[in-house]
Structures are given as C-alpha cells and as structure tokens.
Design a protein around this nucleic acid. Structure first.
Length: 833
RNA sequence: GCGAGGGUAGCGAAGUGGUCAAACGCGCGGGACUCAAGAUCCCGUCCCUUAGUGGGUUCCUAGGUUCGAAUCCUAGCCCUCGCACCA
C-alpha cells in the first residue's frame, strides 16, 4: 500500500524540498518559548549532570569543529532526558583572558564590550545548532557576580595558608608581557606564541599551594573509573610521584661556612659512588657557592647557557663548571666538588643532585666530559663503557658491600635516618600553581599592600574587587594606570595602601564553574549547598584531551579544597570523562581560524540543514576519533534525511508485522546501548538499517513515532517536525525513550534466509543474462521442513527478483531431471526457466 | 629517550578467537526513470571461476599459539599524540 503510494509520487516527479531553515527556526522558538530545557532541582527525579568544557568566546564565533563538540554533549543530554533523568545541561563562557585583552587592545576598545558582543554571537550560534542548554543558567566569568567568588575562594585559601607570595624564578613571555605558568610553557616557548622564547625573571608572585594536595590528586587518579586511561596516565606523569630518600650533605661555602643541604635521590644505594655534586645553573643560591677564583668561569658559563636557543636546548650536551665549593658525603666523609650544571632542574628537589656517574647516565656523560672520577659501587655492569643503572650487588660500599641493591636502598635509608642524616620522602614533579598575571582582563587578586601592615586581604564583605573601567593599555600591567583604583585605605589601620594590581590566571575561573551552574544567580554565597549537593558531581564531562593536565588537575584541586572547607561532598568533581575527537578541515588539518580551513555552521545549515550536519558529524566515526569534514559525506546524510522526510509526507499508517516489530525492538535495544556508550556512529547505522527496511513493509503510526524518537537526539528539529506531521501534539524532545520489547529471532533469521535466496536468484539471472538466456519463472525446491518458509516469503522474492515464484519440494525435483537442483538445509534448489 | 594510542578493501570507518572476503558511509561501475543531465530508486564493487557454486589471496611485515586468528603471543617497520635531562 505504501509502496504504491511512493511510486505514484515518483511518477509525479515533483520532489518537495525541505525548508530546513524555517523548520529549525520554528522549533528553536517553540523550545525557548515553552522553556522545555530549563531544569529545577526536582528531588523526586534522578538527576544527571552533563557538562561540556565551556568555551572562551572568541569574536570569530563558532565553526563546525565547535559544532561537533557540542553536538556530542547535546545528543547525550537529549538521550538522558528522554530516559527520564532530570538533566542539567548548562553552558557558559570562560570570558576572561589574554586573547580578549589582546584583541581589544588591537581594536582600541575595552575588553568588556568586545567580550560581551562575542558572547551574544556565541549564544545565537549555539541556539541555531539546536543545542538543548538551559539558557537560564548561563554564567560569564568576566562578570563581577562570578569572579567575586574567585576572590572569595582565594581569601579562603589565603586563610588556610594555601595562597602565598614568594619570589621565584618565573617564566616571562615578552610578547604577552606577563608571567606564565609552567603548564603554559611548551618546550621553552610561550603557549600562545610558539616562536617566542620564554625568559626567566625573578618576581614576587602569588602561588596556590596545589602541592598540598599532590599526593591525594595522585592517588585519586586510580579511582576515576569513568575516565579514559590516557588522561589518567597523563595526569600521573604530570604529578610525577617518586619515592626516594632525602640525604643531608654538608656544603662548605667559600668563606668556610658550613651549610646543610637536603639532596633528593631515588637511589640511596649508590651513595658510596658519589664523586661530585651538581647544582642547577638556574639556582637562586648558586652564586653563594662560587669562589672568587671560579667566579669568572661560572659567569661565562651562565651567559653561554642563557644564549642557547630552544632548538639547541633539545640536543644540548651536559655542560657545567666547577663552583670552587665542596660537599661532604655523609656516609664516608669524602670531600666532593660541587659543579654548576645545565641539566639540573632548579625547582625539583633542592636544585642540587648527588652525582653517581657509575650508575646514572646523565652523571656518567658529565663525568666523561670533565674527566671526573667514576666509582663503581654496584656490580653487574661495565661502567667504563656506560652507566649501569640496573640492580646488582653493592661493592666498595663499606658495611653495605655485598648487599643487593634493592635491599640496600632500604638499609642505607634506615641507617641515615638513625643518624639523622636523612629520611625517606616522596617528591612530586607537580609544582605550586603560579596564578599572578600582570594583565588587565582577569580576576583582581583581593589583597592590598599597606605601608604599615603589609599584605592585607580584602574583607569578604567588600567583595568583589571590581576591575576598573578606566585603564591605559600599553606596556606592562594596565591596572597600575588606574590610580584611583590602586590607592585605597588600609582596612586595618586606615593608612595608605596599594591594591594588588596582578590578576589571576584564567584557569582559576574554570576550576569551579561547574559548581556555579548548580546555583548560578546566588548573590549571597558561592552556591547553595543543597543545590550543589543535588546536582554534583558532574556525571558526564565532555571536552578535549588538551586539558588533561591543566584544567582537569586544577579542578580536582579546587574541588578537594572546597570539600575540606565543608562546601561540597565527595572527592572528585567529574565522574565520567569523555574526550571527543577533533574535526579536521577538508585539507586534513585540524579545523581552525588561523589555518583558514573552517567551515561555518551557518553556511552548512543553509545548504543542508543543521540536523544533517549534526547527523553527519557523528556518523563518520566514533566520536572520540578525529574526523574530517567532507562535502560528499554530508550529501549522504542529506539523502537519508530526505528519505525519512519523504516517507512521512506520504505516510499511511499500517499494521506493524511481527517481523518489523522484532526489528524495531532490536533497533531500540542496540541504539540505546550505543548512545549510552558514545557509539553514535553505530547508532546511526542501526537507524539507517531499520529505516531502509520500512518502505517494503507496513508500519503503524505509533511504531514509526518510535523510530522518530530514536532519531530525535541526532536530528532534533526534523524529528520534532515529523512527530507533529504524524499528528502528535507533544514535544518529541520530552517524550520518553522507547523500551525494547520482544524480538522474534526466528523471524529475523528466516528473513535473512529469504534475502540469501534472492541474492542467489539474482546471481543466476546475471549469468543467464550473460549467455543471452533468461526466464520468467523460478522454481524453488526446498527440503520439506523449509517449504512453508519459502511459501511465506514468496511475495517478497517475487517483488525483489521480478520473477514468478513456485515453491516445490525437493522430492519433486527429480521430475525435472536437472542436476542443478541440489538442496541443503537453508539452501534450496533453484531452477529458472 | 620514556609513556600512550594506532596501522582493516580506492577513501573514511566498524569488527578484537569460529557465524569474516569483513557492517555502514563515501567514491566508482551497471541498470530503471528522463529527449538529456541532475535528483531519486534498484543492483554490483579483492581476484579467478561458476546456473545460486567452487577456489585463491587478504586486515603493516615476519614468525608463533590454536582444530581454527583481522582478532591472542613474540620480534620488527611505520604513523599520531603526550612528557621531555625530575636525580
């Protein structure tokens, strides 16, 4: 019945074009008008919190790459919503930061106006993508109502001694004119200016003591069951925990003064093999160790290593120079020379290492170069050829000689502990978080410097410390140019005080924003505890892998801090993490404005409809893989959508057969699992597979509606439109997700068998055609038990092959005397004539 | 160097012990429709052979385990990403 209808239309030859634009607009307006995506903390419903990493709102707007990111989360949210969860799916903007400031300076404008315009544009574009955000919960980090709470957290950290100031060698980017965090330095270059070397400067800076949580952050990684293994590995590497022993070495300084240095080593078993010490060339106390005789040489050396460019740094040879000072090995009282070296990291351990050239390849290299003693203390290698870093038996090690190295590590540590010459410790690669930025467009650090009282934190009731509007951009820190803002009265003594003019790193803003979504408009407190307890933790976090180390560690740190403050429950903010792949342009390179290969959603939407684009983006590959934009590919998605649309336009409700019902139930079952596990690509295939079967069968309105529900997370506008075309009055977006029912496997198997015979018949026909022969009738000789099966499928076979079908028993085949008619179970004999 | 991931038909991409010559999409070829093109629909798409069959060679390379491997193990090659002298 349906087939006939379709054929008739084809004869008419008029294809109705789908007006994507007005369909999209219509439903976006309906959704908004009816506030269907706004959520309340309904306790009777189970909550589910889906979150995408919020974007920095750039003026250039969204491109297809962003569309992919958000579509992945939107599909998930829509799916979970239909599954009956109370879904929190918010969006906001990480709107403070260098790019806005730089762009605004370029345009000669204040970053605020610039940023707010960009946000407006972002929201418009996001709405056009059909994303089902709760727009009543938008947060913008540049608003004082938001960053007030950044400042509040800072004050709490200050109270607890977790925010502190210290002079430290810092990374300074001459282009950004600001200090960078370690994480923002990539291979010695600025993360934003890949061609700019980062300089080292000594400044007073604010730090957050993330290292206080280093061990917990490290240990907690294993409990993150819903996180990708790769991210967990990256974090572990980043935090870099290593066990070892801190050994006290006596250092004899030039004037003969003695000083105790804690030297960290993971190999205390090699202590008897120490033949020299190396202090980092960047160490602030280096010059204290340099004797007059060596001063010139050391200075020359420092100058030299400063001038090497980053490229050379990579294959840099170990270099150093003698400082003139000595240290005393605590176990055998040997006097050992201290060198300054370029391969020692200043802020790891104490910035000085004990060198055991026989058993460490770096030390070995250095010793060879400067002709230093190599003393073998663990047997098993050939230390004249290379360092032996493996395990073995100790030699030349006093009372420890003859002991196995693994055991010696413990015994020597114990020995040192007993003599109070050392202790076993754990070192972390993770360093405290430097948050000071000499920039305007960030959260002001809420402290003042009083001439009498020194550092005075701003009172909580005086928050927020708002960014002044009137500043001059140019060299250095713009906030210093706002004189009226800078000079205030000290809240303690009333004397003249100067505000801190540094602002906070933007990663501060993104370290807790997920909590603010739970209560975005609260102006009394950072968030209502009850509300955050209902929604937290984030059940599904979605974002790029590039944030593995910075944002995702900082957020975990903040969450733990707030927990210790009694603000939140639980130890981790994000239960499940999904890393989506990147979209590449047609040139195969990651889509980006600077590359110039962007595809704009507006343009795609105009041409194909946004649902088509959404469908295409997730059907290319598993969403965690990178994919490429492909005009041909999206045509394929368009074809599918057109077919579905077409089908509904000409829809005539029929009776769903048991076979179709089985297929539908199977589709429901599989698609549900696929979406749940982010296998969107496979879900789409199953949608297509099911739909491709319908035109040959009848289906009821209700059951076709079920198909539309399955389609709706991917193509929400089209699904909504067709749902209504079928006569439904509700929003499909709020319908409940279909439950799978009975699947008659036998029927499905039988159908496969029919399909197989159709292929067989076609093959024969083709061969016959090649010979110039043909036939109108096909005789199927089945084994007795299968006769009824083919009898049932007769009509279908006739339709598909265009031949008249006669089903006979194989026992009758002999009458035809043909050797071609052999029959096996599942493979009846065939005779075409 | 270390760590992680990966190499599947012309391309993209599923599949991770038998049901695999291997889903699906794109591309390509053929057919229907059309005056024609496009769109649409149907069929095909590793090679040879054939009345639906049978055979051969495949899932980076080379070995191995197994009754049986794209799937497991070993070695090697290549690609991508992360860390990069952390003592």
């Amino acid at each position: 019945m349906i087939r006939k209808e379709r054929r008739k239309r084809k004869e008419g030859g008029v294809e109705e074009e789908i007006d994507f634009k007005s369909i999209e607009k219509k439903w976006q307006e309906e959704w908004e008008k009816n506030k269907i995506f706004e959520v309340k903390g309904a306790r009777e419903k189970k909550k589910y919190y889906v979150l995408e990493m919020f974007p920095y709102p750039s003026a250039s707007g969204l491109h297809m790459g962003h569309a992919l990111n958000y579509t992945i989360g939107d599909i998930y949210s829509r799916f979970m919503r239909m599954q009956g969860f109370n879904v929190l799916y918010p969006m906001g903007f990480d709107s403070l930061g260098l790019p806005a400031e730089n762009a605004a300076i370029k345009a000669g404008k204040n970053p605020r106006g610039y940023t707010e315009k960009a946000i407006k544009n972002f929201i418009k574009q996001m709405k056009e993508l059909g994303l089902s955000y709760d727009w009543s919960r938008v947060i913008e980090t540049h608003k004082p109502e938001y960053y007030k709470w950044d400042q509040w957290i800072f004050l709490k950290m200050y109270e607890k001694g977790l925010a502190y100031r210290k002079k430290a060698p810092v990374n300074y980017c001459p282009k950004c004119k600001t200090v960078l965090a370690n994480e923002q330095v990539h291979n010695g270059k600025c993360w934003r200016h890949k061609d700019t070397d980062v300089e080292i400067r000594q400044l007073e800076q604010w730090f957050l003591k993330i290292t206080e949580y280093a061990d917990e952050l490290y240990k907690g990684i294993d409990k993150l069951k819903g996180w990708p293994e790769i991210i967990k590995k990256l974090q572990k590497n980043w935090i870099g925990k290593s066990h070892g022993t801190e050994i006290l070495f006596e250092v004899i300084k030039p004037e003969g003064k003695k000083e105790s240095w804690k030297i960290f080593t993971t190999r205390p078993d090699t202590i008897f093999g120490v033949t020299f010490m190396v202090i980092s060339a960047q160490h602030p106390k280096l010059m204290e160790l340099v004797t007059k005789e060596q001063e010139e040489k050391v200075k020359k050396f420092l100058k030299k290593i400063k001038s090497v460019s980053e490229k050379e740094m990579e294959e840099l040879e170990k270099e150093g120079v003698f400082t003139g000072s000595y240290a005393i090995n605590p176990v055998n009282k040997e006097k050992i020379p201290i060198y300054a070296g370029n391969f020692v990291v200043a802020d790891y351990g104490s910035g000085m290492v004990m060198a055991v050239p026989a058993h460490d390849s770096r030390d070995w290299e250095f010793a060879k170069k400067y002709n230093l003693k190599i003393k073998e203390v663990i047997s098993g290698g050939n230390v004249k050829e290379r360092a032996f870093i493996g395990e073995g038996v100790l030699i030349n090690s006093g009372q420890f000689s003859g002991m196995k190295s693994e055991r010696a590590r413990i015994e020597i540590s114990k020995f040192l502990e007993k003599k109070k010459l050392g202790k076993r410790t754990t070192e972390f690669r993770l360093k405290d978080w430097l948050i000071s930025r000499q920039r305007y467009w960030g959260t002001p650090i809420p402290v003042v410097y009083c001439e009498k009282c020194g550092v005075v934190p701003v009172n909580e009731k005086d928050l927020p410390v708002e960014l002044p509007e009137k500043v001059k951009f140019g060299e250095g820190n713009p906030l210093e140019t706002a004189k009226n803002w800078v000079w205030v009265k000290c809240s303690k003594c009333g004397w003249k005080a100067r505000r801190e003019t540094d602002t906070m790193d933007t990663f501060v803003n993104s370290s807790w924003y997920y909590l603010r979504y739970t209560d975005p408009k609260n102006n009394k407190e950072i968030f209502d505890k009850k509300k955050s307890e209902y929604w937290m933790p984030v059940d599904q976090y979605i974002g790029g892998a590039e944030h593995a180390c910075m944002h995702l560690i900082y957020s975990r740190f903040y969450y733990k801090f707030l927990r210790d403050l009694g603000m939140v429950k639980g130890d981790e903010p994000f239960v499940n993490l999904f890393n989506q792949g990147l979209l590449h342009g047609e040139d195969g390179v990651v889509m980006s404005k600077s590359r110039g290969n962007v595809v704009l959603p507006e343009e795609v939407s105009e041409k194909y409809g946004i649902d088509t684009a959404r469908l295409f983006l997730v059907s290319q590959a598993s969403p965690d893989k990178d994919i490429s934009w492909d005009e041909n590919g999206i045509e394929g998605s368009l074809r599918f959508i057109k077919r579905v649309f077409d089908f509904v336009v000409n829809f005539e409700s029929g009776k769903t057969s048991e076979l179709v019902e089985s297929k539908l139930n199977k589709a429901i079952k599989e698609i549900t699992e696929d979406i749940k596990n982010f296998r969107y690509n496979l879900a789409v295939i199953k949608l297509r597979e099911f739909f491709d079967n319908i035109p040959e069968e009848e289906i009821s309105k209700k059951d076709f509606g079920t198909f539309l529900k399955l389609l709706s997370p991917f193509c929400p506008h089209i699904a909504e439109e067709l749902w209504h075309k079928l006569g439904n009055k509700t929003f499909i977006s709020l319908e409940s997700w279909p439950k799978d029912g009975k699947i008659n496997e036998k029927l499905l198997k039988e159908e496969k068998q029919i399909e197989r015979i159709v292929v067989d018949i076609r093959n024969i026909l083709k061969i016959l055609e090649g010979r110039g022969e043909g036939g109108r009738v096909v005789k199927i000789f089945a084994i007795p038990s299968e006769i009824s099966l083919y009898e049932k499928g007769k009509e279908k076979i006739e339709k598909k092959t265009g031949l008249e079908v006669k089903v006979l028993s194989i026992k009758d085949a002999k009458k035809f005397g043909e050797k071609v008619v052999k029959a096996k179970p599942g493979k009846p004999g065939i005779l075409i004539g």
